[in-house]
Nucleic acid binder design. Structure first.
Length: 851
RNA sequence: GCGGGAGUGCCGGAGUGGCCAAACGGGCGUGGCUCAAGACCACGUGGCUUAGUGCCUACAUAGGUUCGAUCCCUAUCUCCCGCACCA
């Protein structure tokens, strides 16, 4: 009978009985609340003693998390965000910084109002209930906030300042009202800012937005377009956020060119970044929305133009963008100022009314869109740019060398852009211009649950600002308005009708309220002086600002994080805060999402893991540890029940190691070694936390604990105590409750307020010596494991230069290996290696023989 | 289409020129512990090999730079994210 060769392992596997069950027998006992008990106790203790109060003194550190919308219970995303923030706040506090670490609630907003309509609740009651519940949730996590600085944005004490800012911005020309085409969400029954429209849909409910011509309030964010771009350079922010903001602001350098219209006094201005292609311009395209379209339309084309416009009106912006390149000749011709060429004027759906001048010069030879349009409408295509290298493309859109361009032929595109503009500038036909995609911030909302805009409309005086001393304009009580019938503020006549502050005649209030993003654009400033009642800010702001560490989700990259930067600049310019304070957040970190089963946790996907349930089962420390040890803050975090249990088991192990183990017999060399290793741990751990590599810091610490645990019985009590204390302190930012509990057993103080451990010198030689001995015992262990022997005598054959080393540590080795040790120099190997088996080794490693 | 990022073991995820067959955690396997138990401890977990060891093949794929690459460069493929007719 033939048989196939099997590896040792396979044979071994087969021989073994198929046992199991032993493990499965462990019945899950009910959690006995050991951890929960002291977690609650310490939370109460911290609160009673007020140990996390922020006091402006010495070196400061402002640690901030994006405050939550009070939707009810906190979710895993919050836990992740705040666990990281709290670890940093605690770490800095222990390093001796005065730390401002506040929390508040972004309490105004549509969901509260919609809940009111849907469930027959009042927005204020609903919100208040949620705030209370969330505070409880946050407390149960053991976060070290200074709750005295809590902000809730629906409180008049908060929003009255917002109204004051609005009035001053209005005076400074930073706020204005204007009629324009705006995005309107039917479902939310309000207009939306540009930033709140995603792919033509409402960011909140996903409804297709409509365009409406309405009179709306705006903040002049575009005033700071340049500063918003340039300021990014100095900020310690994730590069991707900076890129998103740069793209959003969309600065581009180009030229504005004037095209006179043939047989007319009218002029058409176009914006282009490619004036170098001007000689290739074969038509002009206007946005159908432009006013001059009517004037430029000739009689013979009127019918077609009307028909075309009627067709366009029916399309949404999105459809226009997707469908492509329809257009219509309107009869007039424009004159190219550089060569006098007459070119036809079209209206075309792909020309955006709001960017540049709403009119473009079209060069089908060097622009893909113009090319498509020209093909469709059979227009002339003239090549005026030659590629530097031969290239075989239909439409060459890159820079190259000019041809067929009069005296500019032969120039590079780059040079020609300057020269052509300069040339036309002389006759006032062109100028250099910078264009931005950023638009002003539409801040008014036609809803109830927001900060009222402090304006009054008088029949005689027109628009009148509410006098500052009459602020705040309070939101009328929620039971005095009607919901679900348009803007609820219109339904309360008592609130709506007022006297004009100037002439006392009949007047009405502005019924629009402010976008909730206004509330979140300055809350970080208010934390600095949350208890100040006579002014929005006091001198503490100069101490705490700017925020040193800001953590939150990436979704705010082009919304909140631009608005806040705008607001800081505007407040600085209107004198509310220091002139020099131009940027609110020095360092920004965007934490990754929390995933479950490969997808973002969300109710609709049904993969939500509720933090409060986890806390009930394992305690807050275990949950916090899981969040900080499983992946780096900026990466995504995959939820894993087993991993969660692993974090919990670590707490058990750590607790046991520090409270239940004792030494049998102390060995001096081990004491020295482990103390030395501790120094390395402190150094690396501190560096890693500083660099926000929390999971790496913790994995180093876990390794150290394994080692500490392995040697524990040889470590003298006073050394072990020192190590334990250090470990407790290092872990305090991560698992504060357990650390506080363990610390309390031997000290009267709070671990949370102790000094962060400082590393002493690390001795490499000490580590190397012990490392060699560890390697030796590892080898011995392997041999014993395989042979099943018990070591009674161990022979070590080493090179002559190592002889002294092993001789020196012979007692330690004997102790660790529980055997009699014999050390021989390898020169006499043959003589002392009776079995001839111990000689197979490489330089530097001793040969071992075990009896 | 443009811009950004990433591809490492059964899984999550470190490492970013040699100390790496690869931290730490999870899973799995083998053995120990048989009342400190909600567990714990030891060893193993690419292939072959040895009483400890050594060798080979690996860090998406294909090339290149280098004495030497998971790490640098080039191309390709895949995935994720942001913007999207911005003139």
């Amino acid at each position: 009978m033939y048989y196939t060769m099997k590896t040792k392992k396979e044979i071994k596997k087969k021989e073994k009985k198929p046992k199991k069950e032993a493990k499965a027998k462990h019945m899950k006992k009910k959690f006995d609340n050991f951890f929960l008990d002291f977690e609650k106790r310490w939370q109460a203790e911290w609160r009673e003693k007020g140990i996390f109060k922020a006091v402006p003194k010495g070196k400061k550190f402002y640690c901030l998390e994006m405050f939550p919308y009070p939707s009810g219970k906190i979710h895993m995303g919050h836990v992740r965000n705040y666990t990281i923030g709290d670890a940093i706040a605690r770490f800095k506090r222990m390093q001796g910084f005065s730390v401002l670490y506040p929390m508040g609630f972004d309490a105004f907003g549509l969901p509260a109002e919609n809940a009111a309509i849907a469930r027959g609740l009042k927005p204020d009651e609903w919100t208040e209930k949620n705030v209370i519940e969330m505070i409880e949730n946050l407390r149960a996590l053991g976060l070290s906030y200074d709750w005295d600085r809590k902000i809730v944005t629906y409180e008049p004490d908060y929003y009255k300042w917002e109204q004051l800012f609005f009035l001053r911005f209005l005076k400074a020309g930073l706020a204005y009202k204007e009629k324009s085409s705006v995005n309107y969400c039917k479902k939310c029954d309000t207009v939306l800012a540009n930033e709140q429209v995603l792919n033509d849909k409402c960011w909140r409910c996903g409804t297709q937005v409509e365009e409406k011509d309405l009179e709306q309030w705006f903040f002049r964010t575009t005033k700071y377009s340049d500063e918003l771009i340039n300021g990014l350079e100095k900020l310690d922010w994730p590069e991707r956020v900076k890129i998103m903001q740069r793209n959003w602001i969309g600065k581009s350098f180009g030229s504005e060119i004037v095209f006179p219209v043939k047989d007319s006094d009218l002029l058409i201005k176009v914006f282009t970044t490619r004036i170098d292609t001007l000689f290739g311009c074969t038509f002009i395209a206007l946005s159908p929305e432009l006013n001059i379209v009517a004037e430029l339309t000739t009689q013979d084309r009127e019918k077609e133009v009307r028909a075309y416009l009627a067709k366009i009106v029916k399309k949404t912006m999105k459809e226009r963008e997707e469908k492509g390149k329809t257009g219509c000749f309107i009869g007039s011709y424009a004159i190219n100022p550089v060569n006098g060429k007459e070119v036809p004027i079209f209206i075309a759906e792909y020309v955006l009314p709001e960017y540049g001048t709403g009119a473009i010069m079209c060069v089908p030879s060097h622009d893909a869109r113009d090319y498509d349009f020209a093909k469709k409408h059979e227009l002339e295509i003239i090549k005026v740019i030659k590629p530097v290298k031969e290239e075989n493309v239909e439409v060459f859109v890159d820079d190259g060398i000019l041809i067929e361009s009069g005296k500019f032929s032969g120039m590079t595109s780059e040079k020609a852009r300057i020269e052509i503009t300069k040339f036309l500038e002389k006759s006032k036909k062109a100028l250099f211009i910078v264009n931005y995609k950023l638009k002003d911030w539409l801040l008014s909302r036609q809803r109830y649950w927001g900060c009222p805009i402090p304006i009054i409309y008088c029949k005689k005086c027109g628009m009148v600002p509410v006098p500052e001393k009459e602020l705040p304009v309070l939101l009328p009580p929620s039971d005095s308005v009607e919901f679900g019938k348009g803007n609820p503020l219109l339904t309360n006549r008592e609130w709506l009708f007022v006297r004009c502050p100037q002439c006392n005649s009949e007047a009405t209030r502005e019924t629009d309220t402010m976008d909730t993003f206004v509330d979140s654009s300055w809350y970080f400033l208010r934390y600095c002086s949350a208890k100040e009642h006579s002014n929005p800010f006091n001198s503490e702001i100069d101490f705490w600002m700017p925020v040193d560490f800001y953590i939150g989700g990436i979704e705010h990259a082009t919304g909140h994080l631009i608005y806040s930067r705008f607001f800081t600049k505007a407040l600085s310019n209107t004198g509310f805060i220091n002139k020099k304070l131009r940027e609110p957040f020095s360092r920004l970190v965007c934490q990754g999402m929390v995933l479950s089963k490969g997808e973002v946790m969300s109710k609709s996907k049904g993969n939500v893991v509720a933090p409060d349930e986890i806390i009930e089962k394992y305690g807050a420390d275990a949950l916090r540890l899981y969040h900080s040890s499983v992946s780096l803050p900026e990466s995504e975090l995959e939820w894993n029940d087993k991993g969660m249990e692993g974090s919990f088991n670590f707490l058990l192990r750590f607790h046991r190691l520090l409270t239940k183990t004792k030494s049998d017999k102390s060995i001096k060399e081990i004491d020295i070694y482990i103390t030395n290793e501790l120094q390395l741990l402190i150094k690396k751990f501190t560096e890693n936390v500083e660099a926000l590599k929390l999971s790496i810091a913790l994995s180093d610490l876990f390794s150290f604990i394994d080692k500490f645990s392995a040697y524990r019985k040889y470590i003298s009590e006073n050394v072990a105590k020192n190590i334990s204390d250090t470990l407790i302190l290092l872990l305090t930012p991560f698992i504060p409750h357990l650390c506080e509990e363990l610390w309390h057993m031997n000290h009267k103080t709070f671990a949370s307020l102790e000094k962060w451990p400082v590393a002493k010198n690390y001795d490499k030689d000490v580590a190397e010596d012990l490392g060699r001995i560890e390697k030796l015992s590892e080898d011995v262990g392997k041999i014993l494991n395989i042979t099943g022997k018990k070591a009674s005598k161990i022979y070590i054959y080493c090179v002559p230069s190592d002889f002294d080393f092993y001789k020196k540590f012979i007692d330690l080795i004997a102790e660790l290996l529980h055997a009699e040790i014999f050390v021989y120099s390898v020169t006499s190997k043959g003589k002392y290696d009776p079995q001839g088996k111990a000689g197979k080794t490489k330089l530097g490693k001793p040969a071992i023989y075990i009896e």
